[in-house]
Design a protein around this nucleic acid. Structure first.
Lengths: 235, 235
DNA sequence: ACTACCATACTACCATACAAGTTGATGCTC
DNA sequence: GAGCATCAACTTGTATGGTAGTATGGTAGT
């Protein structure tokens, strides 16, 4: 899904797409930033065509908004979508970890444990960026072990809003050790096949994702869509 | 999401995209069918550029597969994805109808009842196509009432595989009256705020989606990805 | 009859040129 | 000076030509 099956580095178009997506998710291209086909074409030293292609892809994922004859902007973070994404993850991850507690392949279990080791290292180095990526990888492995990678893929799309706000959150302070302990215990519950406790833990774990959303909205107001109900979302 | 916020009929590219997507979901363009930028450009009497754009969009949604320098084909239905989509819908729709039983706007409730009336009419006319669309609209309204339309949108992407197989199913025989009764009872449970029964009913309702999947696979084998584990999916 | 090879007719990909619309500033009119 | 028209500098949208890679079918050689 999402073209993920195709080599991502094949064509120029895919390279530009991957690069832009990376920058957007890293907030290197902040929400609301103006893009331009021509400008990007110059920066990447390619023609407008592959750049335009990547814009189409990104627009399809809701990461940018193309305003005909007016310009292309990085999509603002929509608080409504952030909550929806959190809700979606909660339901799906609870169901998945329950499956994992019934049966989970050895290979992915080892991968989880290896991931946990790397998380320890990252915490010691206070490497927030890597910690974020390991967190992603951990949850992804859960879906992989349950043969639900397709669901993970489409979830990532809605996560575009949630993850960017989490990215802001980690810039502030984040209690990584707390999340790490959760992950560690999840792996233990899976091995012990304790679905009940695992599901409850997952719910608690994901609740932390947006606890401080209102704080973030106040601090980085220019990155979010105004809550006003009369303002259309397509800005 | 999915560019749904933009006028769908504005540019030539969007028109081509919408038209192709419609034909694919209606199985008018069957799984495995070969497309061609040039051919489509001639058929729609436009240049290759907007056609190419639409291919990129469709590829991003997993509806077509673009093989560089080889051609573009309508994606085969992946049985694994069909099951994943069913699982995903089950989890999310169960959660949503539970929310609906706590609080549900009057406007959407009326919409549900109106939809049910139309379903009766369609059944009398034995109009399977319209019945299918009304079914879609019914479930969509549930999400709308719970302010979870974003989730509905991304779910539609994974549903591309599930819905096409359901489309095959309705070509055979389908017990629409059974599904209608389910829908009717759901509305009743929502009004009575009986979340427990509503969730159970939803689970039963969605289980019917793929009961005969194996039969379909046998009957329309050329539309599905071979189950063989050694064959790569990217064909 | 069979195989290796090569020409041809496709394909998607990229670059470029042109068209159409929006925005904002500038200068003119009142 | 305030307001309006006009124009210039952007933007994305579309059309087209050329390029490289692939599959196919016919042909020459065995």
């Amino acid at each position: 899904m999402h073209g993920s099956f195709q080599r991502s580095t094949d064509s120029t178009g895919h390279m530009v797409y991957n690069e832009l997506k990376l920058r957007i998710m890293n907030l290197d291209l902040p929400p609301g930033a103006s893009l331009s086909e021509k400008e990007m074409a110059l920066a990447f030293d390619v023609s407008r065509t592959p750049v335009r292609e990547s814009f189409v892809r990104l627009a399809q994922e809701g990461l940018v908004h193309v305003l005909p004859q007016r310009g292309t902007k990085v999509a603002l973070i929509d608080p409504a979508y952030v909550e929806e994404a959190r809700f979606m993850r909660e339901q799906l991850e609870k169901a998945v970890i329950r499956l994992a507690c019934v049966s989970f392949p050895e290979e992915q279990l080892l991968q989880l444990k290896h991931n946990l080791m790397l998380q320890e290292e990252s915490m010691e180095k206070h490497d927030g960026k890597q910690m974020f990526e390991l967190d992603e990888a951990f949850h992804r492995t859960l879906f992989e072990g349950c043969q639900k990678l397709g669901i993970w893929s489409v979830m990532q799309q809605m996560n575009a809003h949630l993850n960017r706000s989490r990215r802001l959150w980690l810039n502030a302070s984040s209690d990584w050790r707390h999340l790490y302990k959760h992950h560690q215990q999840m792996a233990a519950y899976i091995e012990a096949q304790d679905g009940e406790r695992a599901e409850a833990l997952m719910q608690e774990h994901l609740s932390l994702s947006i606890t401080d959303l209102e704080v973030l909205r106040a601090q980085y107001s220019e990155y979010f869509i105004p809550a006003s109900s009369e303002v259309k979302k397509k800005c």
